[in-house]
């Protein structure tokens, strides 16, 4: 077998292992789906009426806000996956099985690529659930099939990036508890961007941060694709951020994985 075939086979073996874990112990998967759904329901049915009026659209109110908030909720679902990934990786690293993998003649990063593939698949599935529930609570997209596909592409891109970053976060600490807390700030980012309210309603400093943080162009691109608002440069910015975050996460992960495991 060629090196590439080995890499693929070993990664798929590790993917199977992670999917088995997910299926056998669904609590973590469930919580990654539950988090964005709870926020969706909270923001549509509790804050939605008031926030929707503030948007000043055609209809205003809850219906307007349901459309506005869904891209932010989707990105929140992506950020939520980071926690599960970091926990999974940290658990692997603290348990003896990693020593076995490291002493086998396998594609070394397959432990990590298996986690990445598994988390991306799980996240995409949970986002399908979130979209279905969004449609049920009032999302009225005007996207064509191609635009849906593009939206899925944007979400996959940012998910791969965030997941690689969380793989690194799962290894940077030696304890599972710390690993589960490190990705927390990612969950707050959609709030400090255009996820829940337009950035022009924020004070200057906050607005500057909100406009230039990575999740805002992703959210704006999704909004444009699903609801037909202007996208402008945001698609390029979203792709750039995804590439940058993914690359940093990837390189950082490999460095952490190859360091002396006993140091």
């Amino acid at each position: 077998m060629t090196a590439f075939a080995h890499a693929r086979r070993d990664s798929l073996t590790m993917l199977r292992r992670n999917l088995r874990h997910a299926r056998r112990y669904p609590a973590l998967t469930f919580s990654t789906i539950a988090l964005p759904v709870i926020f969706l329901l909270l923001f549509v049915y509790v804050f939605g009426g008031t926030l929707g009026d503030g948007l000043g659209g055609v209809t205003g109110g809850r219906a307007e806000y349901a459309n506005y908030v869904v891209p932010g909720i989707l990105v929140m679902g992506v950020a939520g996956a980071a926690q599960g990934t970091a926990i999974g990786v940290a658990m692997d690293m603290t348990e003896g099985i990693i020593a076995r993998f490291r002493t086998m003649a396998i594609f070394r990063p397959s432990v990590l690529t298996g986690h990445v593939l598994g988390s991306v698949i799980q996240t995409m599935l949970s986002l399908v659930v979130v979209v279905a529930i969004s449609l049920a609570v009032g999302l009225r997209p005007n996207a064509t099939a191609l635009e849906w596909l593009a939206a899925a592409g944007v979400l996959t891109m940012i998910t791969v990036a965030v997941v690689w970053l969380s793989v690194a976060l799962g290894m940077v600490t030696r304890s599972v508890e710390t690993a589960s807390n490190l990705p927390m700030p990612l969950l707050l980012l959609p709030f400090m961007g255009s996820g829940f309210v337009p950035t022009d309603s924020m004070p200057a400093a906050m607005r500057w941060f909100a406009d230039y943080q990575p999740f805002t162009p992703v959210i704006e691109t999704l909004r444009g694709l699903l609801l037909g608002t202007g996208i402008g440069n945001d698609a390029w910015l979203a792709a750039g951020w995804s590439l940058a975050i993914g690359l940093v996460g990837f390189v950082w992960s490999i460095v952490l994985y190859n360091r002396d495991p006993t140091a």
Partner: peptide, 22 residues
């Protein structure tokens, strides 16, 4: 020096090893 995967069954553990041994 190298444990097995506690979340998998004994058979699944061995199957994983067989896969990793290609």
């Amino acid at each position: 020096f190298s444990a097995v995967d506690g979340l998998l069954t004994g058979e699944e553990n061995l199957a994983m090893m067989a896969d990793l041994c290609h």
